[in-house]
Design a protein around this nucleic acid. Structure first.
Lengths: 196, 196
DNA sequence: GTCTATATTGCGATAGAC
DNA sequence: GTCTATCGCAATATAGAC
């Protein structure tokens, strides 16, 4: 802490300027959609001047790509944590528990992965496939759990579970009723338990 | 047909100019989203000059409102047709059959009601509630069928069915796999039959 | 690397002739 | 009622000083 002025003459960027932009973009795009979120909004929220955004991301699309990559990365961490649990049924139920715990945010803005994927499919965007890969990652993880439970119809069960998951959030969001997530969550947990 | 020039000096609009705009708006907005659909696109598709759109709709929002009203109207017609069938299980399965028959369009663009509701919730739009009412209409119809089947948990069953319905379309659209609709459709029909 | 000022474009909406 | 021309604005992206 001594002589802070004399050392490090090179201006080191406050760590995370780029990360702050990605996080701000993710939050704003989840709340208002990609199209309605301007780079000015993101820059303001991240406390970065507008023109400087283009030093980190050449286009808005690159920023969206970074958001998707961040989702994928977070998803892998979540899987790693869940995989610590001993049985597949416990892992699936633990995910449903954390899902229900987030019901307020999910009801307010929808599923981050689902709504982004839906919006990107409407554009001519190549990014749609990247977003789809995140959803496919969740589907694959579900399928692995069911396979480990010895189910030959693991794929179909995974599709049914993911559809119920995404569909319930869509309903909760559109109808503005977070209790739908609680009720469906409990029903799905019972269903999983009955399969184990 | 005689003397067509001398009669009806008042220029009667070719029937359906307004309707053409609504239909074109619905198609374009389903394909590309409300935000990305410009009034110029709609006017061009409906073969109406851009400036003339404002004679029929004061704002773009009014045009979206007309699209929603059209969805609601079509939904009522669909319910009336389905209600001709003798049993609630037959009605539900008939709806799932028509759903599966439309799997190609649903996979390409998502559910017209679900994607519109999701997008409008992202905006500050008051129209979101109008769109939600259409989804709620479908939910209510489901619930009536289960009630008529003598189920005390009709509401919960309706939520589960609608979530599976919307969630499956979201997956089929995002993952670009229309077979998901076929597989889930058959599973849901079996489930309904098992309840009857 | 950082930031201000601005070029450029596309869209919603309007004015006003016919 | 119909249509052309255009305004005003917001947003992406760039130029260029520091």
């Amino acid at each position: 802490m001594t002589h802070p002025d004399t050392q490090a003459p090179v201006e080191v960027a406050r760590p995370g300027k780029r990360d702050r932009l990605i996080a701000a973009a993710q939050a704003a795009m989840l709340a208002h959609g990609v199209e309605r979120t301007s780079l000015a909004d993101i820059a303001h929220a991240a406390d970065v001047p507008l023109g400087n955004v283009y030093y980190y991301f050449k286009t808005k699309g690159e920023l969206v790509a970074a958001v998707i990559e961040r989702q994928r990365s977070r998803q892998q961490e979540a899987f790693a944590a869940l995989d610590q649990r001993p049985t597949p049924a416990q892992r699936l139920c633990a995910l449903l528990d954390s899902w229900m715990a987030q019901r307020e945010k999910l009801t307010a803005h929808g599923c981050p992965v689902g709504t982004l994927g839906t919006e990107l499919r409407k554009g001519a965007d190549e990014l749609a496939d990247d977003s789809a890969a995140v959803l496919a990652g969740l589907l694959g993880w579900f399928e692995r759990q069911f396979t480990e439970m010895g189910r030959g119809d693991a794929r179909q069960l995974a599709v049914a579970l993911l559809a119920a998951y995404e569909g319930t959030i869509l309903l909760a969001n559109t109808l503005a009723d977070q209790d739908l997530i609680t009720v469906e969550g409990e029903r799905l947990k019972q269903w999983i338990t009955s399969l184990a």
